[in-house]
Amino acid sequence: MTTKSKLFLCGLFGTVILFGLPWLGGEAISFSALWSHSPTLAIDHRILWSLRIPRLLFVVAVGGSLAMLGASYQILFNNTLAEPYILGISSAVTLGIVVAETFLHLPNTSLGALSIGLFFSFFVTFLLILSHSWRTGRELERIVLFGMGLNFVFSSALFLLLSYRSQTTGGGSLRWLFGNIPWLSLNESVLFLLLTLPLCAGLWIMGRYLDGLSLGDTVARTLGFSPTKVRCFLLFVTSLHLTLITSLTGSIGFLGLVVPHCIRLLFRPGSTRLLFVASFIGGALFLGIADSLSRALLPPLEFPIGIITTLLGGPIFLYLLWKK
């Protein structure tokens, strides 16, 4: 079987599982509740349409995006250990929102808090792009190290603020440190999906440039594009994408690192575009399962999603490495 047909079958299988997920959970729900308006199924219908399906859509958008972002960072920085949170963009967003929450008393989902998060993230992105384009892109490590430095600064500030806050107001910190899937309405999650899908599609189109970049800058220079410009552009777009996600979920660890690697080890996709498609489905599935687990393990307790993704992803990753 060719890589493409294997991927197609697994993708189909994954999608079927994904759409089965809303029927898993504390309450058993009849399948016909999807369309039925009969009084006996009214509650099921509401649970499905106002809780579980919106959540599934959100999880698909977040999981798929994070896996794609992880894959693109790994190629962009030619670093197998790269993951979406490596450059400090997410900690900057989080810090911005927590600052807004703590000092301006804005709710963390308010437009004000989100814009402050966005401002922090743009500041970091700007610094990163500057650090890259200042001289020629000869030293790729520099931008990663620079981003890691920023990440340390911003996460220390975040820890400081969170520990100060936990003494004054208590609680609410886990959400930011280990990630969290918020309950959104159907309209909100459809909106979120409509915002993230074009970004994913754009990244998919740019995938071919990433193929070029993966051959090293020397060859990439003769492939009809400027590696530095493409890298700066991708840095900007992925930062925006990541900001959008992190502002709602905090940092969901391990997914962006582990999913693309699993896809590579399992399928050896021949192009970045194929890797992107497979990563999107894999990431969505992974986060969907982790989310169901986080709520199903000890209901009504809901574990921070990042803890589950790490507990789940770590062993899978180690196993795959061990096998190869």
Binding site: Y209, T218, L223
Partner: peptide, 29 residues
Amino acid sequence: SIVPQEHTFPSELKVKNFLELAFLSRTGI
């Protein structure tokens, strides 16, 4: 076009896919 001194490529890339990247500039994205 260039044959570089150091070979840089993703570790799992097949020869076929590698060669097709030669058409990137003329085909576009």
